[in-house]
Design a protein around this nucleic acid. Sequence first.
DNA 1: TAAACATATGAACAAATATTCATATGAAAG
DNA 2: CTTTCATATGAATATTTGTTCATATGTTTA
Lengths: 117, 117
Amino acid sequence: MDFEIAEQNIVDFEKIEKIKKVLPQDDLIFEIAELFKVFGDSTRMKIISSLLEDELCVGDIAVLTNSTPSAISHQLRVLKQAKLVKYRKEGKIVYYSLDDEHVREIYEKGREHIEEV
Amino acid sequence: MDFEIAEQNIVDFEKIEKIKKVLPQDDLIFEIAELFKVFGDSTRMKIISSLLEDELCVGDIAVLTNSTPSAISHQLRVLKQAKLVKYRKEGKIVYYSLDDEHVREIYEKGREHIEEV
DNA sequence: TAAACATATGAACAAATATTCATATGAAAG
DNA sequence: CTTTCATATGAATATTTGTTCATATGTTTA
């Protein structure tokens, strides 16, 4: 590890060492990136936008997103695994809703960035 | 459009129409997703984590991320296009820094979600 | 002016991923 | 109990995307 560092062109060695100490662990950074990856798809973002308004079943989400129930079901699984949505069953119908206030907050920060630039 | 809707299995037509009215335009949703896509990569997330601490040049970021200057340069271009980082030149050295408080806020919301679940 | 250096860029390759299609599951209705 | 319906799932395909490698650009130093 240290060999590699020594071989490269470092402008400010002390600054690097200082930052290295406070950087989050690789696996935490990986998990954060994985979370944002879930937000980084138009279909899922449209699902999230819709669920910000109300709980919805798969078929209704498919209509709102101009997508197929199958595609939506796949994406809801991704959102579920990321703990961004939860669901409740009512007979054969499954209602999905947002699982976390962070979803709304993250969405809104993203929207702010887009709309202010 | 309305034909497609009529053909599908809709559970609550009124709810759908109501949500449809308040949903953001497709192109805004697309842009938000594109923004989060930028956050959704480990390398870029590590760059962002580093720049949260201080401005850094390409070579130093490469060391901190265990990556090559070339790979980092490519990723910095992505971050630049998303208006997440800015840069200043000092001779042949280019210093990058975060361009927007939203970056920090979005990063922290993401981290909160990961750490609280 | 030539060499060394930091960064940028383009093309090619490999890996990841969203959608589609066919089919499965499980619940309600006939 | 058989059909219909809502949702889920697996495999295949097509597209996107990150890295690598070679090379280019522009700056400093010898």
